[in-house]
Design a protein around this nucleic acid. Structure first.
Lengths: 214, 214
DNA sequence: TTGACAAGTATACATTTGTATGGTATTCTT
DNA sequence: AAGAATACCATACAAATGTATACTTGTCAA
């Protein structure tokens, strides 16, 4: 049962785990201070002592020797190579999706995106670059990357990536007993209705995130 | 095709990977020397330089900043999420921004987000969680994180994070010679006009990215 | 009201750590 | 034979880094 942390202590701990994951080695006292806006080394040391006392980390003498305790449910160890993907996921970006082939096949792969774990939780996440303006009303613009969790079915009304006539698109899906209605969040575009067993459509997965670069 | 190592270089490299894995952080020059029976720091540095030249590792300035290259068949990475030279940035997430205080001050800091370097290029990037619906028309919804590059002025018509009456908001900024017009991308909300030297407004930076979790 | 704790600033100091200088050998290739 | 790379030593030095002292502020419980 881990001792509770204060809000500030949580921030420090959060930064530590992320930084170690990202760089491969722990930050120095002053680097921690710089990242969190603490101007005196002593201020940072106070937090480290508190975190150590509460059992969240340990320190050796010497520079950059913070160790995150792995006993905390094994959630925040600093053995980066054994905990790959706990703090960031390298998500594949798919280009044109060849019909029939497995979605994550090599020929579909275009790039990789580094995404915070909280945005790409779970396995089988991939990304698509949005082309049309069909989801304008849902705040999804052309050029955006959508993060997709691979699944065969989605709940009524959820936004999904759908393979429609060999073209990957993003649509809101309304399912009735026998049909799927693919609705564009754009008044200029009419809904598309198809029977569920038709081969024209295939649900690729649920949209779990959107990323835009301006 | 990794360049071949000498026997001694292999020993060094081996020790490095094992030590990083065991301790959680890289050894210092002298610790390497102690472990391998090299009595002069210079002796160790020579090996590190050779290993770096041959592409097995990289180093930053500062103590204990050796990074094993993960491109070598991915066998000994010490930062798993970065593949093939692709990097991520650890971006601070700001909460309520206290007026007057430096933007990145402690009281504003809420969390950290790991973001692909292509979304957070350059320095002084921070993130804000969007609260209102004022930028609906620009595809920015409440709950989204906007990535902000800190800068004092923005070009005409760009979307910016603005501190308005102690409240951080996202607005499209139109500048004339003497006034700033802050336009919401939402027909329900009227534009706000202020004189540039008024203290009510302060431009925090330009929006360079949007991230949404669904 | 006192006392503990959290959270910090400013400054000084000691240690750790990386870097640089100037050598010595050995092995290998040209 | 000359040059380059490997593989070291001893020592000095500077920069990075952790540590320590002293003081401030606010909160919260006894």
């Amino acid at each position: 049962m881990p001792e509770p942390l204060t809000k500030r202590q949580k921030q420090i701990f959060n930064y530590l785990t992320h930084s170690i994951q990202q760089e491969g080695y722990p930050p120095s006292i002053r680097e921690i201070g710089e990242a969190l806006g603490i101007k005196s080394p002593r201020g940072v040391v106070g937090h480290l002592e508190a975190l150590e006392k509460k059992g969240y980390l340990s320190r050796e003498r010497g520079a950059r020797t913070i160790k995150i305790k792995s006993s905390l449910g094994g959630r925040f160890p600093n053995r980066p190579q054994k905990q790959a993907g706990r703090f960031g996921e390298n998500v594949p970006v798919l280009g044109a999706i060849a019909a029939g082939s497995p979605i994550l096949a090599e020929e579909n792969l275009e790039d990789h995106l580094l995404v915070d774990e909280r945005f790409a939780s779970g396995k089988n996440i991939f990304a698509l670059k949005v082309k049309g303006e069909s989801m304008l009303g849902a705040g999804i613009l052309p050029g955006d990357y959508v993060l997709v969790r691979q699944q065969l079915k989605v709940e009524n009304g959820e936004i999904a990536a759908v393979l429609l006539d060999d073209e990957a698109t993003v649509k809101r899906v309304h399912c009735s007993k026998t049909t799927l209605r693919l609705v564009s969040e754009n008044p200029a575009m009419a809904p598309i209705e198809v029977r569920e067993n038709e081969k024209r459509v295939q649900i690729l997965g649920k949209i779990v995130g959107v990323m835009r670069k301006l």
